[in-house]
Computed example of a mutant assay.
Amino acid sequence: MNTLYLLALLACPVGMGLMMWFMMRGQHGGKDQTTDQKHEIGRLRSEVDYLHQQASKDNRPG
Rank of each mutant, 00 (worst) to 15 (best):
L18I: 01
D58K: 15
H39D: 07
G30C: 00
M16K: 14
S46G: 06
S46C: 12
S56G: 01
L18T: 07
R45S: 13
K38H: 04
E40K: 03
V14R: 12
E47Q: 08
E47H: 00
H52L: 07
K31C: 05
D36M: 12
M16V: 12
L18N: 14
S56V: 00
G26F: 00
H39P: 03
D32L: 04
Q33L: 13
K57H: 01
W21C: 10
D36P: 10
H52A: 03
Q27R: 00
E40S: 01
A11W: 11
L18W: 01
R25Y: 05
L44W: 03
P13Q: 06
P13Y: 03
Q53G: 08
M19R: 12
Y50K: 12
A55Y: 07
C12F: 14
D58N: 14
C12H: 05
H52D: 03
M23Q: 07
Q27M: 06
H28G: 08
M16W: 11
Q53A: 12
V14H: 04
I41N: 04
H28S: 04
Q54K: 07
E40L: 13
T34S: 08
M19K: 03
M16D: 10
K31M: 00
E47N: 13
A8D: 12
R25D: 11
R25V: 01
A8G: 05
K38N: 01
C12W: 08
Q54Y: 09
T35H: 15
L44C: 11
G15Y: 08
G42I: 06
R45H: 14
Q54M: 04
L9H: 08
Q33W: 05
